[in-house]
Design a protein around this nucleic acid. Structure first.
Length: 182
DNA sequence: AAAGTGATCATG
DNA sequence: ATGATCACTTTG
């Protein structure tokens, strides 16, 4: 197990989104217990020119964090109830991020954040140094398929059709009963 | 199929 | 200040 570092995040969002499928999302809860889950699905959002990207309309209070250098968390509330976890990638000044859409045992962007107790209090968290939220890799090369992104009907047809969603293809290991409770 | 929920951003 | 919109989930 190797913790991902600044270099791992200094890539464009598509490269990052592919690399993050199969990586481990790690979270130390407030009670001190550490939960680790393999990422099963991601999506790439790629700069102001990507009409599906939250930064499409430029830098605002909310999207400011996307312009930071790769390696921090971008978390926002969607539909009034779902915390969405993104990993900022790329160079400073380039708003790119990878949406984490699912982990083993908690598929769905809103589900995994609830499951791992991730909310906006972790917005801008430094994933390279944080002891509350970080990523690890076990070096396993995971097979994935790509598909169009979800829930972006407002974007241009061209951007809707881009296959910037990446889904783990390997059969998910059944969760042990002890893992299932949380 | 539709409600539920609240931050965000563009209007005025 | 007001209102439409929204990287979703659950329930019926």
């Amino acid at each position: 197990m190797r913790r991902l570092g600044a270099d791992d995040y200094a890539v464009d969002a598509v490269t990052g989104a592919k690399a993050l499928v199969g990586a481990w999302l790690c979270r130390r809860l407030d009670d001190g217990t550490v939960v680790r889950r393999r990422i099963t699905e991601t999506e790439a959002y790629c700069g102001e020119e990507d009409t599906a990207c939250n930064a499409h309309k430029g830098r605002t209070a909310r999207t400011d964090v996307m312009y930071a250098p790769g390696g921090c968390a971008y978390i926002y509330l969607c539909y009034g109830m779902h915390e969405m976890l993104n990993v900022v990638t790329g160079a400073e000044g380039r708003p790119e991020a990878v949406l984490i859409r699912g982990v083993e045992g908690a598929e769905g962007p809103g589900r995994l954040t609830k499951f791992l107790q991730i909310d906006r209090s972790l917005n801008r968290e430094d994933l390279v140094h944080s002891n509350r939220l970080w990523l690890e890799s076990d070096g396993a090369r995971v097979k994935f398929t790509s598909a169009p992104r979800i829930g972006i009907a407002y974007a241009s047809k061209r951007d809707q059709n881009r296959k910037w969603r990446f889904i783990c293809k390997t059969i998910a290991r059944p969760l042990a009963a002890s893992e299932r409770s949380r």
